[in-house]
């Protein structure tokens, strides 16, 4: 009985489908922390939760939509953003949050991302960047650092990873930030801001993947957090072209871009609806 009582007492239980908890994420995985920050930000930002929906794609982070006790959609691989765009255009009152991973949003869904940012659709995109395709076994992704070992790059990754904040900025996003799971307070505040901004908001969150990425690169979960503590520097307003994800140089965190410009709905109404 005491255990049952303790279960229902967690401050986030009101927003969780508690019958599905404990979730599937591995011990030390950072997705749960990002998810918790997202829930706290939703609670404290003052948005109407009855008019909030979470959309996610495929992958470990894609499971997020299944754990939130709001309207939520688990879409096909890479299609979280087009699905969310459709929802937002069909019902402009909704707050649509896209919660997904780097593989889903930037590999298979890369084109959808850049076009939603170009149109400036009012979405809040939270990208959990764990540097690999975690769910399928840790293969090299578009965000895997150069020389990292994965099952598909046993000698080290010869490719250069995406600089996600620069990609978002260059595509036209109106809010761009990057945090890690260690900076939970900044992350929660940032998600809160992104939820209340008009326009396309993008937040990249670095999270450890101990099973897929850490195991092959000799990085235990607490080692990843130590890297986040020692090798990061917070520079709000930094130029996105300078924030390359490279642990040797040091990782820049912060809110990089925050400027408002007309959203897709604004320009659509002005161009196509005003005369009818």
């Amino acid at each position: 009985m005491d255990k049952l009582k303790a279960r229902s007492d967690h401050p986030l239980d009101a927003l969780l489908r508690t019958d599905r908890i404990p979730h599937i994420w591995c011990s030390g995985c950072g997705i749960g922390t990002v998810f918790a920050s997202c829930l706290v930000a939703m609670q404290t930002s003052g948005i109407d939760l009855n008019k909030t929906a979470m959309v996610s794609g495929i992958g470990c982070s894609g499971r997020g939509a299944g754990y939130i006790k709001l309207d939520s959609y688990h879409t096909t691989h890479g299609r979280a953003i087009p699905f969310a765009t459709g929802m937002k255009l069909a019902n402009p009152e909704l707050n649509v949050v896209v919660f997904s991973g780097d593989g889903d949003l930037f590999a298979i869904g890369g084109n959808h991302f850049i076009h939603a940012a170009r149109r400036n659709v009012e979405l809040t995109v939270i990208c959990v960047n764990n540097l690999n395709y975690g769910m399928t076994g840790g293969q090299a992704a578009a965000t895997t650092p150069c020389m990292a070992k994965t099952p598909t790059t046993p000698l080290g990754n010869p490719e250069t990873p995406f600089n996600l904040p620069l990609l978002a900025y260059a595509s036209g996003a109106s809010y761009v930030a990057r945090w890690t799971i260690l900076h939970t307070r900044d992350l929660t505040k940032s998600i809160e801001e992104a939820l209340t901004r008009r326009g396309f908001s993008f937040i990249e969150v670095l999270a450890p993947c101990p099973t897929g990425y850490g195991r092959r690169n000799k990085e235990k979960p607490l080692d990843s957090l130590r890297l986040y503590q020692e090798r990061t520097v917070i520079k709000n307003g930094a130029d996105p072209s300078d924030v390359i994800l490279d642990y040797q140089q040091g990782i820049t965190l912060g809110k990089f871009i925050d400027h408002e410009r007309p959203t897709f709905l604004d320009s659509y109404d002005k161009t196509c609806r005003i005369n009818f």
Partner: peptide
């Protein structure tokens, strides 16, 4: 509470 990935402590 904020860093726990498993909603297990508060």
């Amino acid at each position: 509470e904020t860093i726990c990935p498993d909603f297990a402590i508060y």
